[in-house]
Design a protein around this nucleic acid. Structure first.
Length: 594
RNA sequence: GGUCGCGUAGCUCAGCUGGAUAGAGCAUCUGCCUUCUAAGCAGACGGUCCUAGGUUCGAAUCCUAGCGCGAUCACCA
């Protein structure tokens, strides 16, 4: 398809030159809109000056020239200034054959470029919630998308395992935990630690209130409450390497990691390498010292280190506190450099919420100033918040949608619907469980990935996620339906068939579908360039809709013409392949039956 | 206040590197299961593409200003 497009574009350039002595670099070809006859359209308005003729006449001239010089174009029609070219059915038929013969159709062979994709990167004091789900699905999917576009990809995350917030859960556990463990309580490790994080907050608040009632200012109360004072002492001990504190920290973090692993596995995401802030922040400090020596950064009289970005239209940003301790930015610098030492990377993608747009803008400038050649290929995959109908999610108000609960609910819904529709007859318990998980997760993932990453999105837990229309299950269902047909064709011994079927006059719905399938490789490339799984999601939906229209209109197994049956089964098979590949990029599995 | 992002049907969203009559799904209504899976298909209803200017043969799309929503401007992460 790309080749054909290029051929026609070249033909049009030549036509303009010969007809009107006009030199243009390229001629823009676009898909003909559905309401008009034709496949590809050239808009001739830009060439009227050179042709010195009206739009219709110009389009006619061009059309005749192209029909005469390019075999694949059978006819053309002109509507106002739009030249619609009709590609012959034989070309579409051979396109389909080519698609069917291409292994891994749509996937580009792996090139040399290596890209790191960072995603997830949670705090280790709270369980994962809806916002993390969006992050994980996006990050994973963009990684898959880049792979499909021929990049070498490494999936990584940075675990925020250092800082006062960790000490809060640790302290509360010490005080109130009475030795409770995931084993003794039966709680998932991350949930258990999260529980103590909340406990801390409760106790801390109570102390603040008491202090205020004793006449303290609110600010002083917050600063002097025994809980926070103790937490700070604990952080200090941790930084000094106090054996007892470090042991507790390791134990509780271990619980959290175990809990997270379960959630990741359920979500179907994975990582090639984990980074821990507790390991990289020191490297960051070192690099800042070096940058200081190079003159990239500057030191204030109090000893704090800054970068001045006023020339770039930004502010001055702190990199080291006056006491020499590191900040968020320092750690990110260290992490980035650590990664470039671990991998020969050409670029990096950070999947982080849009509240950190500014942070990454600054980080990227810093990396460039420090002189790393990969710095120009850093990209912040910035996504909008997930809102609930009640507004923002707030852990303090208990309006958080927990990731594990959410996934469970999706599976339960999938189960209820499947049973209601009576789709599970003759399936083993294992098969049913696999299907419910696949469909539930399909609904959730598609729901989150079909919208443009940078937009805020609404999630209404009351209404739950749809299973009809533009949804994951709808797409999965179509795939299962195709597979059922192919199984039947196979059982009847008519498919797969040798050679290309003698079927040259396509029905409109068939032509429509082949056209769509032919666009798949281009879609992958665009989606990867834009870092947008949504482009793939919406494309797959288009394909599936076109297939269902055909399925309803035309008999597939029961046509009188055997060649037509084979052609349609080939078409069905290629559709299933494209759907499967597209959905795989979204991290969604498709079932053989449902 | 400065900066960044978003604003399209009742709701959730496509379309945005300028092109023809602005598209889907949900919701509401009407048809289609004695023929391949009705989680489906066909149709109806539903729009000041936030507003005002500008550029252009042509603007939902680009530019400017304004309005609305959000984020961010910490020696927090």
């Amino acid at each position: 398809m790309i080749k054909l497009k290029e051929k026609i574009e070249a033909g049009a350039v030549k036509a303009l030159k010969e007809l009107y002595a006009l030199d243009v670099e390229t001629v823009e070809l676009q898909q003909t809109r559905k309401d008009f006859e034709g496949d590809l359209t050239i808009v001739v308005f830009p060439y009227l000056r050179a042709s010195k003729k009206g739009p219709e006449q110009t389009a006619n001239d061009l059309g005749e020239f192209l029909v005469g010089s390019i075999d694949e174009i059978s006819t053309f029609n002109v509507v106002k200034g739009f030249l619609n070219l009709v590609i012959s059915d034989a070309v579409w038929a051979s396109q389909l054959a080519e698609i069917g013969n291409t292994p891994n159709y749509g996937i580009q062979p792996e090139g040399d470029e290596t890209i790191l994709v960072e995603y997830s990167s949670p705090n280790t004091n709270k369980p994962l919630h809806l916002g993390h789900v969006r992050n994980n699905l996006l990050g994973y999917s963009v990684a898959e998308l880049l792979k499909a576009a021929g990049k070498k990809v490494k999936k990584v995350q940075i675990i925020n395992d250092r800082g006062i917030h960790i000490c809060k859960s640790m302290l509360a556990w010490q005080k109130f935990g009475e030795g409770e463990t995931p084993q003794s309580s039966g709680m998932k490790g991350d949930k258990l630690v999260g529980k103590y994080y909340v406990e801390f907050d409760k106790a801390y608040k109570k102390e603040i209130e008491e202090l205020i009632s004793q006449g303290k200012e609110e600010k002083a109360a917050k600063d002097e409450a025994p809980m926070i004072v103790e937490a700070r002492q604990m952080l200090k001990k941790w930084e000094d390497g106090d054996a007892e504190v470090v042991a507790l920290w390791e134990k509780m973090n271990g619980w959290v990691y175990e809990g997270f692993e379960k959630t990741y596995k359920n979500l179907g995401v994975d990582f090639d390498k984990y980074y821990y802030e507790s390991n990289t922040y020191l490297l960051g400090k070192k690099v800042v010292e070096e940058g200081l020596a190079k003159g990239v950064f500057e030191k204030d009289p109090d000893g704090s280190v800054w970068i001045d970005l006023t020339a770039e239209g930004l502010d001055r940003k702190i990199l080291l506190r006056s006491d020499g301790t590191s900040v968020y930015m320092t750690q990110d610098i260290g992490t980035a450099i650590q990664r470039s030492e671990d991998f020969e990377l050409d670029g990096m993608i950070y999947t982080v919420g849009n509240e950190q747009d500014y942070h990454f803008k600054v980080l990227f400038i810093i990396m460039e100033k420090l002189g790393y050649d990969w710095a120009k290929n850093l990209y912040h995959l910035s996504y909008g918040m997930v809102d609930l109908p009640s507004g923002k999610m707030k852990s303090r108000e208990g309006t958080v949608v927990d990731a594990d609960d959410l996934m469970q609910e999706m599976e339960d819904t999938a189960k209820a619907i499947s049973e209601e529709l009576g789709k599970t007859e003759g399936m083993t318990e294992d098969e049913k469980a696999t299907l419910y998980h696949m469909v539930g997760m399909g609904a959730l993932k598609y729901f989150m990935l079909k919208v443009d990453p940078k937009k805020r999105m609404m999630f209404n837990p009351e209404e739950s996620v749809d299973f009809q229309g533009n949804t994951g299950p709808f797409i999965q269902y179509t795939h299962a339906r195709i597979k059922s047909l192919l199984r039947r064709g196979n059982a009847e011994g008519i498919w797969p068939a040798e050679g290309t079927p003698k079927y040259t006059e396509l029905q409109p719905s068939e032509r429509e579908l082949v056209k769509l399938l032919a666009q798949f490789p281009e879609i992958i490339t665009t989606a990867a360039d834009e870092h947008s799984p949504a482009v793939v999601a919406n494309y797959v939906y288009e394909v599936v809709k076109a297939y269902n229209a055909l399925y309803q209109q035309l008999p597939i197994m029961t046509d009188d013409n055997k060649e037509a049956i084979i052609f349609r089964l080939n078409l069905s098979s290629s559709t299933a392949e494209v759907v499967k590949t597209g959905m795989r990029i979204l991290g969604i599995d498709v079932p053989e039956r449902m």
